Amino acid sequence: MTVTLKAWSANAGNALGRFLQSTSGKIGLFLAIAIILLALLAPVLHPYDPSTDRNYLTRLKPPSAQHWWGTDGLGRDVLILVWYGLRTSLSVGLVSVLLGLTIGVLLGLVAGYFRGWLETAIGWLTDILLAFPSILLAIAVVTITGPSLPSVMIAVGVVQVPIFIRLTRSMVLSLREQEFVQTVIAFGATPARIIFRHILPASLAPIVVQATLSIGTATLEAAGLGFLGLGAQPPTPELGTMLSDAFKNGYSLSAPWTVLFPGLMITLMVLAFNLLGDGLRDALDPREGY
């Protein structure tokens, strides 16, 4: 046990050192932390009630000292809307990736370890899900469940499932032939113990990297559903919905700030988690071989 802990500590130290050498990783980490803190502190720093936030006397005002990012067609402060829209989009990204990761990893573990008809059935499911473009699959799920924030989380989570199935299955197929796994099998360990105590921990590095990258993808897909009117419903602020309202009402040219700032925030969120994922990939797998 002592040797294992020492080896783990050494690997963790090496990974941290490689991460600190990654410029993209450090930038992504800084941006991701800033985004998460802004989302968490929003109700504390500026309590907000979207159902009462409107002032028709100040509609479509350009950026000024009173409204730094201007106002929208209902007289709402765009900065506050983007701030709380960031909170909504981040929640969707985190919950949907957690959902897709949980289901995908479990199915990938089962398919890779037990093989046989289970692997075939899960492989068919994966192929069916991957046969559809991700946004079309998400639209189909939301259409069935009805437009709402929980529906978006489920839809985007379903899109992430086959990604984690394939990744986990490939890791399990490689690891189950390794000497340390064969040794545990020879000692008569149960499949559950082998999977969750030995194979899964050894597979965490690529899973963590993929989860980080998937947060950016999930955020973009959630914004796309919001733009199509299938995401969070009014008056809940959401970045994709803000873009949709601006384009539908013709504000993109007459009041470009109603499009510019929500679009920039979506871009910043995707960039942050992509850079963080790249940094984690370089740190956890310097060969970049998975």
Rank of each mutant, 00 (worst) to 15 (best):
L228N: 05
D127C: 02
W69M: 13
I27M: 00
L118P: 13
L173K: 01
A283N: 07
L20A: 02
L276T: 04
L41W: 10
V181P: 11
L228S: 00
L130W: 06
I199G: 05
G116W: 10
R169Y: 00
G108T: 01
L37V: 09
Q66A: 14
L268N: 10
R115T: 01
T88F: 02
L264C: 14
L276W: 06
F132S: 11
W124H: 09
G100K: 07
A232H: 10
L29Q: 00
S91L: 01
V95N: 03
M171R: 09
V184G: 06
R166T: 03
P50A: 10
P150H: 07
F132P: 10
L94C: 11
S96H: 06
L118D: 11
S148N: 01
I195F: 01
R59W: 14
P50Q: 12
I27L: 02
L280M: 09
V141D: 05
G229R: 05
D282P: 10
R18I: 10
G231V: 08
M153F: 08
G104T: 00
I36T: 03
G224S: 06
I103P: 04
L29S: 07
S254E: 11
G75F: 03
G289D: 09
T58P: 13
A138L: 00
A205C: 15
V3Q: 08
G263P: 12
Q182G: 07
V105H: 02
I36D: 05
Q178I: 04
P162K: 05
A189V: 13
L268A: 12
R59F: 12
L253A: 13
S91V: 05
V209N: 13
D278K: 10
L220A: 09
A12N: 09
A12R: 09
I33V: 11
W83R: 01
G85S: 11
L38F: 06
N11D: 14
P234Y: 14
G85H: 04
A39Q: 07
R197G: 11
L200Y: 07
E288R: 09
A32L: 06
I199E: 03
V110I: 15
Y290H: 07
I135W: 07
A34C: 00
P47G: 01
E177H: 08
A138D: 10
L45D: 02
A10T: 05
L94E: 10
E177Y: 01
